[in-house]
């Protein structure tokens, strides 16, 4: 027997960022009030508002809850291995220099297991936009300590509170040579979107840290209420200070969060330095890798 449901006035309005997502993969896996979602929304809005050529834009993630972002973006999208999103993205960018390559991943992925790649890509000024969702914890694996967990905060592997000093990531990025460094919380929707837009438009190693609640693990382990409570808390305790000295950007447990744009400067990218150098040394003999890739066409 067939049942026919009559839906005379079904609302068919599409979500404004739907064209940027793989709607055939929705619903996503993220918990309610997880901060990753708003970061994705801001990112999609930034793609739309900058009008970049989406056919020439690739997104690379590592592993983790944030690592799933690549799986939902309707771009050339690579879900790679834990910690290796940056070197994978480096290969993509250098293999086809005309691409806009964005790395979207978690704090554990990019600053923990992938920390070495992070500092070297910044040092080389590889042309990558790095979006890191910092929820102060390893979300995907169940709330273990991260290199970002604030002192005294609890994690499943620091059940008595964390006693390891965390990274001050904007400072790390800046001191390694990042050309653009900013930090916002996941509730700074407009400012975060604007920052993403700037990040998309700039060149070189651009780093944007998004402070976001992990409602299920970090919030619960630390009795901080719901994800929404925590999102509000981060937002309300943010002190916007553009151009702040990055040495002062360390984060204490449930304390003020200095947000803003800290670095925005130009420095030759890896590829620019390489071209300039080889042009000088090799002259006409230099044949750069073609913008569309070093492929030999059949």
């Amino acid at each position: 027997m067939t049942t026919v449901t009559q839906q005379t006035e079904m609302v068919a309005e599409e979500h404004p960022i739907a064209p940027y997502l793989r709607m055939d993969r929705i619903p996503h896996i993220w918990c309610p009030t997880c901060g990753i979602g708003t970061a994705v929304k801001c990112f999609a809005t930034a793609l739309e508002e900058t009008g970049v050529d989406l056919d020439k834009t690739a997104v690379v993630s590592g592993i983790g809850c944030t690592g799933r972002v690549a799986g939902y973006m309707k771009l050339d999208a690579f879900h790679t291995t834990h910690g290796r999103a940056i070197p994978f993205a480096t290969g993509l960018k250098l293999g086809r220099p005309e691409l806009l390559v964005i790395v979207f991943s978690g704090d554990g992925d990019l600053a923990g297991i992938g920390g070495n790649h992070f500092i070297h890509a910044a040092r080389r000024n590889i042309d990558l936009l790095i979006i890191m969702v910092n929820n102060f914890i390893y979300g995907m694996t169940g709330g273990q300590n991260a290199p970002t967990t604030p002192l005294t905060a609890r994690s499943s592997t620091m059940p008595f509170g964390n006693f390891e000093r965390p990274f001050n990531l904007p400072h790390l990025a800046a001191s390694c040579g990042a050309t653009y460094v900013a930090r916002w919380t996941s509730l700074h929707i407009r400012r975060l979107t604007k920052s993403f837009k700037e990040g998309i438009e700039r060149k070189g190693f651009r780093f944007i840290e998004v402070i976001a609640p992990c409602s299920t693990l970090y919030a619960r382990l630390n009795k901080l209420g719901t994800g929404f409570n925590l999102m509000r808390f981060y937002h309300d305790n943010a002190e916007i200070c553009h151009g702040a000295d990055t040495r002062d950007l360390g984060i204490d447990f449930q304390n003020k969060l200095i947000c803003g744009k800290f670095v925005d400067e130009e420095r030759p990218t890896f590829l620019e330095s390489m071209h300039e150098h080889y042009n000088k040394i090799l002259g006409d003999r230099y044949v750069p890798i073609p913008p569309e890739g070093g492929m030999i066409h059949g």
Binding site: V60, D76, F78, T80, T81, R84, I86, P87, F88, A89, T90, G91, L92, L94, G95, R96, L99, N116, H117, H120, I289, G293, G294, M295
Partner: peptide
């Protein structure tokens, strides 16, 4: 990093 980079670069057809 070397291995990850060559996998990434291969996806450009290179």
């Amino acid at each position: 990093a070397s291995m990850a980079a060559i996998v990434g670069a291969s996806w450009t057809g290179t």
